[in-house]
């Protein structure tokens, strides 16, 4: 059950094989939504792409990675306490940190924290539920902290290579999520877990659409802290 084997599983069917499709569907949904909104309304906003393009691009990629992990966890549904806590903590932190960072970069600390903490707590608790109350608590705590940290980091690096920091934060978060998916794969194979649930692609489309729509709205029309007005 090496990482190599895990990567090979992407080419096969089964739970891991579907993950690639999830990323594809999520990215397509988000970019199609963005393209439609751009041609209908957003292109009339001055400097839309230079101002928000970078942060929207990475927010969309972040959502595809978060949804990939969520779908992976939901496929097996039940894990041991330790794994469940790790799942709640990792998904909570990353799904709080990344949206908070990218929204914090355009709207400031308050909106970044609020949106990041809400998404972090929601996804953290939802996925941590796979092992019971400990996972839920871990998810809530991690989501809350991730939201706070993401927006705070964005504002603190506002004057010091904000975009480069965004890329670094995204790459590290992607590596952490890859590690989580590997852990789920390993756990499932070692304990001979069977697939318990199958989400169709509507699940991915729905969440990608919702998260991207809220992010675009917040970035462009949402409230801002004084420094961003």
């Amino acid at each position: 059950m090496s990482v190599k084997q895990f990567v090979k599983e992407f080419h096969n069917g089964g739970v891991e094989g579907e993950l690639v499709k999830t990323v594809f569907v999520s990215i397509v949904t988000s970019f199609v939504l963005l393209a439609i909104l751009y041609f209908l309304k957003l292109r009339y906003i001055e400097n839309f792409i230079p101002k928000y393009g970078f942060f929207l691009f990475f927010a969309i990629l972040s959502y595809s990675l978060i949804l990939l992990s969520v779908k992976h966890v939901r496929a097996y549904k039940e894990f041991a306490c330790m794994s469940g806590m790790m799942i709640g903590m990792t998904i909570g932190t990353i799904s709080g940190l990344l949206p908070a960072f990218f929204i914090g970069s355009t709207n400031g600390m308050f909106v970044g924290i609020t949106f990041g903490a809400v998404t972090g707590i929601f996804f953290g608790a939802w996925n941590g539920k796979c092992c019971g109350i400990m996972g839920v608590m871990e998810g809530i705590m991690a989501g809350f902290m991730g939201g706070l940290m993401g927006a705070m980091t964005a504002l603190m690096t506002f004057n010091d290579n904000l975009r480069a920091t965004g890329v670094i934060v995204f790459i590290i978060s992607a590596l952490i999520l890859f590690g989580l998916n590997y852990m789920i794969y390993k756990e499932a194979r070692e304990t001979e877990m069977q697939r318990k649930h199958k989400d169709d692609e509507f699940f991915t489309i729905f969440w990608s659409f919702l998260l991207t729509a809220i992010t675009i709205w917040l970035m462009v029309f949402g409230p801002r802290s004084v420094l961003f007005q």
Partner: peptide, 20 residues
């Protein structure tokens, strides 16, 4: 397709550079 999409979207969204 994922890589192609990312490259195309990256070209569109990252080419503008920062106003700020």
């Amino acid at each position: 397709s994922i890589f192609v999409l990312i490259i195309i979207a990256g070209f569109i969204f990252l080419k503008g550079g920062a106003v700020q």
